[in-house]
Amino acid sequence: MPLSSPSLFLLLLLIIGLIGKNQSIIIAVLFLFFLRITGLGQKAFPFLEGQGINLGVTVITVAILVPIATGQITLYDLWDSMKSTYGVVALVSGVAVAMLGAYGVRLLSDDPQVTMALVLGTILAVAFLKGVAVGPLIGAGIAYLLMKAIQLIA
């Protein structure tokens, strides 16, 4: 039985993940294969497509907040970090990344055709450059800002 186009694409991504020795891509592709093979994808895919990013961001946020919950980071530590140049740069960077992510969500919903290029760039960076898969949102945010800048110039 020949493989369907989505299965071939997932297989290609699995090979990229294996070549790049990237556990996140390998697990993600195997999970999606499992959903396709078992038929669970019919219900899971629409949910993951609509809520997956929010779910992922929530999991990342929980992981980031664990040191606060365990007491490793206190309010005093936060206040103390704001006294350094690095702390202020980190604060500004956090705001900038959150805004880029918001712009990215807007671009991906307004112009879905850029999604594939952003996803491919993210997959390549994750597989071969030890990147992290938050790239599509931030990448879309950067693309959004660059597109707006080009519109202003042109």
Score class of each variant (00 low, 15 high):
1 M>N: 02
1 M>W: 00
3 L>Y: 06
5 S>F: 15
6 P>M: 10
6 P>C: 09
8 L>H: 03
9 F>T: 14
10 L>T: 01
11 L>H: 01
11 L>D: 07
12 L>F: 12
14 L>G: 03
16 I>Y: 03
17 G>N: 04
17 G>Y: 03
18 L>D: 04
19 I>V: 14
19 I>T: 07
19 I>C: 11
20 G>I: 04
21 K>L: 07
23 Q>P: 00
23 Q>H: 08
24 S>D: 04
25 I>G: 07
25 I>N: 05
26 I>S: 07
26 I>Y: 02
27 I>P: 01
27 I>A: 14
28 A>G: 11
29 V>L: 06
30 L>T: 05
31 F>H: 01
32 L>I: 14
32 L>G: 04
34 F>P: 02
35 L>W: 07
35 L>K: 02
36 R>P: 02
38 T>S: 15
40 L>M: 13
41 G>P: 11
42 Q>A: 14
42 Q>S: 13
42 Q>F: 12
42 Q>D: 14
42 Q>V: 10
43 K>S: 15
43 K>I: 12
44 A>C: 12
45 F>T: 01
46 P>L: 08
46 P>E: 08
48 L>M: 14
48 L>K: 02
49 E>N: 09
49 E>L: 10
49 E>P: 00
51 Q>E: 13
52 G>Y: 05
52 G>W: 06
53 I>W: 10
57 V>R: 00
57 V>T: 00
58 T>N: 09
58 T>V: 11
58 T>H: 08
60 I>N: 01
60 I>T: 01
60 I>C: 09
62 V>P: 05
63 A>P: 00
63 A>M: 15
66 V>F: 07
66 V>Y: 02
66 V>M: 10
67 P>N: 02
68 I>Q: 05
70 T>C: 10
74 T>Q: 14
75 L>M: 09
77 D>Y: 03
77 D>H: 10
80 D>F: 10
81 S>R: 13
82 M>G: 09
83 K>M: 12
83 K>E: 13
86 Y>Q: 12
87 G>I: 10
87 G>Y: 13
87 G>H: 07
89 V>K: 07
89 V>L: 15
90 A>R: 00
90 A>Y: 08
93 S>A: 15
93 S>Q: 13
95 V>A: 11
95 V>W: 06
98 A>N: 01
99 M>Y: 12
99 M>G: 01
100 L>M: 11
101 G>A: 13
102 A>S: 12
104 G>Y: 06
106 R>S: 08
108 L>G: 04
111 D>L: 08
111 D>K: 13
111 D>M: 08
112 P>N: 03
113 Q>W: 08
114 V>F: 14
115 T>E: 10
117 A>N: 05
120 L>K: 05
122 T>D: 08
123 I>F: 09
123 I>P: 00
124 L>F: 15
125 A>R: 00
126 V>Q: 03
126 V>S: 09
126 V>D: 10
126 V>K: 05
127 A>F: 10
128 F>K: 03
129 L>G: 03
130 K>V: 11
132 V>S: 11
133 A>R: 00
135 G>N: 02
135 G>Y: 01
135 G>M: 04
136 P>R: 02
136 P>C: 06
137 L>E: 04
138 I>A: 13
138 I>T: 12
139 G>R: 04
139 G>S: 07
140 A>S: 09
140 A>R: 05
143 A>I: 01
144 Y>H: 15
144 Y>K: 15
148 K>M: 11
149 A>G: 06
150 I>G: 07
150 I>A: 15
151 Q>T: 05
151 Q>K: 13
152 L>Y: 03
152 L>P: 00
153 I>R: 15
153 I>A: 15
